[in-house]
Simulated assay, not measured.
Amino acid sequence: MKNDGISTPKAGDLLISEPFLQDENFSRSVVLLCEHNEEGSFGLVFNKPSILRLNEIVEELEFLDAEVYVGGPVEQNTLHFVYSGEKILEGSIEIGDNLWWGGNFEELVSGLKTGLISDDSIRFFLGYSGWGPGQLIDELTENVWIICRENLDLESFSSTPEELWRSLLKSMGGEFKVIANYPTDPRLN
């Protein structure tokens, strides 16, 4: 599939992997782009659950049996989070309409413990996806990614990982709707 007229990616964009991408880290991935500038790009794979639960990796949150996603192959010993709704944490960066990246972790822990913050609107990630200067633009030119400017919201947080990739492509219509149904292994078709 050809990405005619590559648009400049920006924070809040979704990068949808082409169905032919063979890299196991990004096969059928939806990456939420949190930052893109001349120094590089930072994103979180939104639809790859890890085998770990939050209460297994954060001692202060042992009461919270929340799913943790693999944010990407870089620094998988780091924890990141995104939440939707009103800004509730100091230091959060707005990356879309009512979509926030990071913020004061102690505030988050306290809010989750007291029930002032609901875990329904938060997604946690181990590691991240990173691109050096110009690397993401090169990958867009090589048709590795499709830029989707659809806003993530609470409904997106509840989509199953398998559904998210397909439903976003279908919502884009046209040729994207067609590739949404492309089989994972065309030899089995």
Results as ranks from 00 to 15, higher is better:
residue 182 Y to F: 15
residue 89 L to H: 10
residue 66 A to C: 06
residue 10 K to I: 13
residue 173 G to R: 14
residue 140 L to N: 06
residue 21 L to G: 04
residue 61 L to A: 01
residue 42 F to N: 02
residue 112 L to M: 00
residue 79 L to H: 03
residue 74 V to E: 11
residue 128 Y to G: 05
residue 50 S to I: 11
residue 8 T to F: 07
residue 20 F to H: 08
residue 51 I to T: 13
residue 11 A to E: 15
residue 109 V to Y: 00
residue 64 L to N: 04
residue 123 R to M: 14
residue 80 H to I: 00
residue 70 V to S: 12
residue 106 E to D: 15
residue 47 N to D: 07
residue 64 L to E: 09
residue 15 L to D: 04
residue 143 N to E: 12
residue 119 D to S: 15
residue 76 Q to R: 15
residue 186 P to V: 09
residue 127 G to H: 13
residue 20 F to Q: 08
residue 70 V to T: 08
residue 67 E to R: 05
residue 51 I to W: 06
residue 161 P to W: 03
residue 110 S to H: 14
residue 53 R to Y: 07
residue 111 G to F: 01
residue 105 F to C: 03
residue 178 V to T: 08
residue 74 V to G: 08
residue 143 N to T: 03
residue 128 Y to L: 05
residue 85 G to W: 12
residue 90 E to Y: 02
residue 170 K to T: 05
residue 29 S to L: 05
residue 83 Y to N: 12
residue 171 S to N: 15
residue 90 E to A: 10
residue 71 G to Q: 02
residue 29 S to C: 08
residue 81 F to L: 05
residue 69 Y to G: 02
residue 6 I to H: 07
residue 184 T to V: 14
residue 155 E to T: 04
residue 117 I to L: 00
residue 87 K to H: 02
residue 44 L to R: 10
residue 16 I to A: 13
residue 94 E to W: 00
residue 92 S to I: 08
residue 141 T to D: 14
residue 69 Y to E: 03
residue 93 I to R: 13
residue 43 G to E: 08
residue 11 A to M: 03
residue 76 Q to C: 09
residue 8 T to D: 11
residue 166 R to Y: 02
residue 175 E to A: 13
residue 175 E to H: 10
residue 77 N to I: 01
residue 65 D to E: 15
residue 78 T to H: 04
residue 119 D to A: 10
residue 13 D to C: 09
residue 39 E to H: 10
residue 44 L to C: 12
residue 79 L to M: 04
residue 99 L to P: 00
residue 12 G to Y: 11
residue 26 F to T: 12
residue 152 L to P: 02
residue 136 L to G: 08
residue 104 N to H: 09
residue 184 T to P: 02
residue 75 E to Q: 15
residue 6 I to M: 06
residue 102 G to P: 06
residue 4 D to P: 09
residue 15 L to H: 12
residue 85 G to E: 14
residue 32 L to P: 13
residue 117 I to F: 00
residue 93 I to A: 01
residue 155 E to P: 01
residue 106 E to P: 02
residue 2 K to V: 12
residue 165 W to H: 14
residue 56 E to S: 13
residue 31 V to E: 06
residue 184 T to L: 13
residue 16 I to E: 07
residue 134 G to Y: 01
residue 21 L to Y: 09
residue 104 N to P: 09
residue 128 Y to R: 12
residue 184 T to N: 10
residue 65 D to C: 02
residue 51 I to E: 15
residue 116 L to T: 15
residue 75 E to L: 13
residue 135 Q to W: 05
residue 41 S to A: 15
residue 188 L to R: 15
residue 28 R to S: 14
residue 14 L to D: 02
residue 106 E to H: 07
residue 138 D to E: 08
residue 176 F to K: 14
residue 84 S to N: 12
residue 16 I to T: 10
residue 68 V to Q: 05
residue 64 L to W: 09
residue 33 L to I: 04
residue 152 L to K: 07
residue 32 L to N: 10
residue 163 E to H: 07
residue 12 G to T: 13
residue 167 S to D: 13
residue 128 Y to D: 05
residue 144 V to F: 07
